[in-house]
Simulated scan of single mutants.
Amino acid sequence: MSIESHLAELERRHEALSKQIDQATNSPSADTLELVALKRRKLQLKDEIARLKVENTIH
């Protein structure tokens, strides 16, 4: 898998998590622990995307 396709997949998953977080936030029965886990995963993806972009521009 190329770096570009890997980045595209990570960005797609990041966007999907954003939508999932929005839906959970607007739900009256939102599970706080699940929401925290989703936000943590979204942040991890964002960090990984940023790291790969930096590494890709250095090499």
Results as ranks from 00 to 15, higher is better:
E15V: 09
Q23H: 08
E4Y: 09
A30Y: 11
L38W: 15
T32L: 14
A16S: 09
L38F: 13
E55S: 09
L17Y: 10
P28C: 01
S18A: 10
L7A: 04
E48I: 08
K39I: 01
H6K: 15
E34S: 10
E11A: 03
K39N: 05
R51T: 08
V36D: 11
E55H: 08
V36Q: 12
E48L: 13
L33A: 00
K39T: 03
S18E: 14
I3R: 13
R51Y: 12
R51P: 02
A50I: 03
E48H: 12
A50S: 10
L33M: 05
E11I: 03
R13L: 06
L33V: 02
T25E: 14
K39P: 05
A50G: 05
S18R: 13
E48G: 05
S27P: 00
L10S: 04
I21Y: 00
M1F: 11
Q44S: 07
E4Q: 11
R13M: 07
K42H: 10
E34T: 05
H59S: 10
Q23L: 06
L52E: 04
I58H: 04
I58V: 12
E55P: 07
Q20H: 08
I3P: 06
A50D: 11
L38E: 08
A37P: 01
A24P: 03
E34A: 12
S18K: 12
H59M: 12
D22L: 08
K42D: 03
P28G: 01
L35F: 02
T25I: 10
E34G: 13
E48F: 09
R13V: 04
S18M: 11
A30E: 10
E15P: 04
N56E: 15
A8T: 11
I49D: 03
K53M: 00
T25H: 09
K42R: 15
L7I: 04
D22P: 00
E15R: 13
D47N: 12
D31R: 07
I49L: 06
K19G: 05
H6N: 13
Q20M: 12
I58T: 03
R12W: 04
P28L: 02
I58F: 04
Q23W: 03
D22E: 12
A30S: 13
I21M: 01
L35N: 00
L43D: 07
